[in-house]
């Protein structure tokens, strides 16, 4: 973004007014449902949409706050932001209506604040040709220190992956930092299945995706709440196909990474590249042997 970028400013203004309208529709809708004895419907709507929103919010806002924002401009971490504005204020609002926190809040949602968007950051950076922006790795040594401070255990859970990637870049093997196959995609949220990262971080009991066989088709889910949302309204979701379903179903030809990128409409000029041309990987790494063995 450049100073004087009028189009970008107009875009942001349009988005904000649109979102302001959305935020004014939810509260009266819930109030009306509760007043007319349909609290169960209001609760189901909140449980359903909060989870689906969380999936994308973690991806967009989590990465923006903890990785894409320059270190000197960071205030809260994403987790601190979520704790204050969502876990407290947003939840208080629903309690005021007489609703309960969603059933998955303590067991699934809160633990994800420690790991989910960090896994997505690694995945999006690694599969960067599949996105239309240039992802900033955001893991230069001083940024790693900040991440470890805000998310104790970050280095053990995620730093090792970045170490392998950085080594490949420093030693002239950028091709080893690019994908040759695809991640499995959740049939509900359409985000890659990163449960193994949650398991490795000690926040999930299993690294495996959840599998549901229904009406002759196999569905894969990244999490219990995604499967729950699907099973609440299977007719709504069962006809949807992920990019992997289309790949395996023969809709993407040739069935290669290049074929899939072409199917997505991404030209080489549009595919994501590292935002700093790998400068972060060439910064002198910290010696963590004293604390991380």
């Amino acid at each position: 973004m450049k100073v004087g970028d009028v189009d970008f400013g107009a875009l942001i203004s349009s988005i904000q007014t649109d979102e302001a309208r959305h935020s004014q529709q939810g509260e009266p809708t819930i109030k009306l449902l509760v007043e007319h004895g349909r609290k169960d419907v209001a609760q189901q709507l909140v449980d359903h949409m909060f989870w689906r929103s969380w999936r994308l919010f973690a991806l967009l806002t989590g990465l923006s706050m903890d990785y894409y924002t320059p270190l000197e401009h960071r205030g809260h971490s994403f987790k601190e932001f979520m704790r204050e504005w969502i876990c407290k204020q947003f939840l208080d609002q629903f309690r005021d209506f007489g609703l309960e926190k969603p059933w998955y809040w303590d067991e699934h949602f809160l633990p994800e604040l420690d790991w989910y968007h960090h896994a997505l950051q690694l995945g999006i950076w690694y599969w960067r040709p599949t996105v239309w922006w240039n992802p900033d790795a955001g893991v230069a040594p001083e940024e790693r220190d900040w991440l470890e401070e805000k998310y104790p255990g970050w280095h053990d859970n995620f730093g090792g992956h970045w170490d392998v990637i950085a080594t490949n870049l420093r030693e002239g093997r950028p091709e080893a930092t690019l994908p040759e196959t695809f991640p499995m995609i959740c049939n509900l949220c359409h985000v890659p299945v990163v449960a193994p990262a949650g398991y490795r971080a000690g926040k999930l009991a299993s690294p495996l995706p959840r599998v549901l066989d229904r009406d002759g088709r196999r569905y894969v889910f990244c999490s219990a709440p995604c499967q729950w949302v699907f099973e609440q309204a299977p007719r709504r979701f069962q006809g949807h196909t992920t990019i992997i379903d289309r790949f395996l179903g023969g809709q993407i030809q040739p069935p290669t990474m290049e074929g899939a990128l072409a199917y997505m409409g991404l030209s080489p000029e549009e595919m994501g590249r590292d935002a700093t041309d790998y400068a972060w990987a060439h910064a002198a790494p910290r010696d963590r042997t004293a604390t991380h063995g």
């Binding site: 896994a119 690694l122 995945g123 690694y126 995620f158 992956h161 392998v164 990637i165 490949n168 080893a176 930092t177 994908p179 040759e180 196959t181 695809f182 991640p183 499995m184 890659p192 299945v193 990163v194 449960a195 193994p196 990262a197 490795r200 495996l208 995706p209 992997i244 790949f247 395996l248």
Partner: peptide, 28 residues
């Protein structure tokens, strides 16, 4: 960190399957 889609051959022994999966992960 992620579950992968990996094509294998139905005649592959498990050693080859393991190699094909590791190819996408180890040293990556």
């Amino acid at each position: 960190l992620v579950v992968l889609l990996v094509p294998v051959d139905d005649g592959d022994p498990m050693t080859v399957v393991a190699d094909k999966v590791a190819h996408h992960v180890v040293d990556h």
